[in-house]
Design a protein around this nucleic acid. Structure first.
Lengths: 244, 244
DNA sequence: CGCCCGTTTGATTTCATTCAACGCGTGTGG
DNA sequence: CCACACGCGTTGAATGAAATCAAACGGGCG
């Protein structure tokens, strides 16, 4: 089972699953914050949806009638700025929650970068559940804090002046996300295009390309192919990132 | 009463107060998310703390034993990067919640930009309250979503290439925050230094200074003094921001 | 096998950083 | 009461790095 494009579900159970880290508790907090019971509860009110590469999960401004909990695949969340260029706010991976809204409307557009499967959880049912189950709700708070920190890391990355440092930090970010999902860490999976990376780190796609090549030329990273990068010299990478 | 450096408390009641916006509900959602009852509950477990300009509320890495709910004054939340330069993650105003932690440790350092008064809410007591009161908890979720959107706006701002556009967006941001707090909107209060602004928008302090002066030269903004700016030409400002 | 999208590489231009000096206002001490 | 010093802000000139425009390349998919 689970032989499709997705990754295996969490240990045993089926149903929505959320990855986050402890807020105040001890360090040994598991990556998953929902109990089996809660996952089942959420499973009752949710459906599984599938999207092909390039398909939209929703559009900015749409009525926000559901949130999505990714099962497999990668999603980019973006908005288009006044000048027409897109700004990618976030890349989303399995066990992430997506569909943030403001006053009933989605604030970003979500597009599948790869084939995607996700639990679709209608917001009215979710809100009812949340108000009833304080523990579930607390876990959602943990997840939101987690995403808040991610957004702050993103902003932190964007203050780098040199494209080299931005790309380096981006790679470190991707790797840490991958590690956080419990996947192998010997190679970084880079599902998005150079253009997407540029729209995330705030540079032109050419600068992304040049930076990656420069890192490779210095022996800091190596390519298996366009979407699989290996970090060969961690200290060197850290140095590049640090010198801004 | 309330004649000190603080601003008046919310309508009538005393106790912690949180500003946020609706998630899924109707548009007519009030800026304040706590009921009188909840404010009183929180008041029981919290104390009022005061900090002078330049004083630290807490340091990055400290054991996170409390969160703060600002009553009056302005706080900057920052971390120092590898190269030694500070990055300001956030400016915090009255009714904001501050003291985000990861696994029991503060992730940023918080410093008072002006004289500050704040409710200090110990985390253990808060967690107990949250787990008991689902509505209170739901409101905290609203607040966190709000802050998440703010962080994404920050990242959005940081992708601007030209310092002029960054400063313009920063002014619009300050103004919208001010409006969200229900204060007058005819003049923007800019409590932070040029250096702080630079550390927030990712430019040198000189670029901030030059950009502000350029905006003034174009008649887009006007100065009453260093910390009070008036927007004279909104369309012009929007144009500057839009052309990246 | 050939097309097309994504990527790489190159030359020019532009803007922010950097280093440096000066101005301004405030608070302090003589 | 004045002088000075210090922090903060402004202004100027030179350097450097990325954006932009443009063209060639490669790999994957029909």
């Amino acid at each position: 089972m689970n032989s499709g494009n997705g990754r295996p579900l969490g240990p045993g159970a089926r149903g929505p699953n959320i990855a986050a880290r402890a807020l105040w508790g001890a360090a040994g907090y598991p990556g998953q914050v929902l109990t089996e019971e809660e996952r089942s509860q959420l499973a009752v009110i949710s459906t599984v949806a599938r999207f092909g590469k390039g398909e939209l999960l929703y559009r900015k401004g749409d009525h926000a009638d559901a949130v999505f909990n990714l099962i497999g695949g990668v999603v980019k969340s973006y908005k288009t700025q006044e000048n027409g260029l897109p700004h990618i706010a976030d890349f989303l991976f399995p066990d992430d929650l997506i569909g943030l809204s403001e006053e009933g409307r989605y604030v970003n557009t979500a597009e599948a970068i790869t084939a995607v499967s996700a639990y679709r959880i209608p917001t009215p049912a979710l809100e009812v559940r949340l108000r009833k189950n304080a523990t579930l709700e607390f876990n959602v708070i943990c997840k939101l804090c987690h995403e808040l920190r991610e957004a702050q890391r993103h902003a932190f990355l964007l203050t780098r002046r040199h494209a080299l440092a931005k790309v380096g930090l981006f790679l470190e970010l991707l790797e840490s996300l991958q590690a956080g999902r419990g996947e192998h860490t010997d190679e970084i999976y880079v599902p998005m295009t150079r253009t997407d990376i540029g729209n995330y780190i705030g540079t032109s796609l050419e600068a992304v390309s040049r930076s990656l090549r420069a890192l490779a030329a210095r022996g800091i990273i190596g390519f298996r192919n366009r979407h699989h990068i290996k970090i060969l010299d961690r200290a060197g990478l850290a140095a590049v990132v640090a010198e801004n």
